[in-house]
Amino acid sequence: MAVKKDYKDQTLAERLRDRKYYVPDSNPEFVKEVEKIGQTPAHMCFQCGTCTGSCPSAPRSTYRIRLFMRKINLGLEEEILTDPDLWLCTTCYSCTDRCPRDLAPTDAIMAMRNLAARRDIVPRNFLKTAQAIYASGHGVPNNDANRAARVKLGLDAEPDTTHKYPEYLEGIRKIMDHYGLKERADKILAEEG
């Protein structure tokens, strides 16, 4: 366990915080959860760096897919799920394509995002997309300018989707409600203000 430093000076206590890795501070079950959701044996990572070397986000940020894979295996759940870099993966799957251990680091990232979401840690834009789909069936819904353009092209103003057939929306909402997604999205977004 990390050494607690009850220094009176809080700033000093934080600056000199024990940074060692201690096994009891980690969650050995975390890797199993990630593997179950991500359907990839993340524990087989041998840290070669092919993933980060393939990553379009790595050169322009502190996002390191290899480090996430390492932290999964060390059970550093807190550190991972609260890391804003978790959301910088563009899901391009280059790492997955090249991983010599045949792992899917991208799917491990997706799994960890799912686990973060269970704690209501989700960036706003993800939730807004969910809300939009609940409302209209589309993540990017139609608008008036586009309707006019469609008509000019000889298309119907509304495409043959839930836009033209809103009766299908009920099914979509039932699926989302089954998972309580809309409710959660509303709640989180309201709390954030």
Binding site: G49, T50, G53, R64
Partner: peptide, 20 residues
């Protein structure tokens, strides 16, 4: 670091080795 990919400079035919 295991080499992620190699890219050729089409003019110089030099190679860029990308990895971490």
């Amino acid at each position: 670091g295991r080499v992620a990919n190699i890219q050729e400079d089409p003019v110089t035919k030099n190679l860029h080795i990308n990895t971490e």
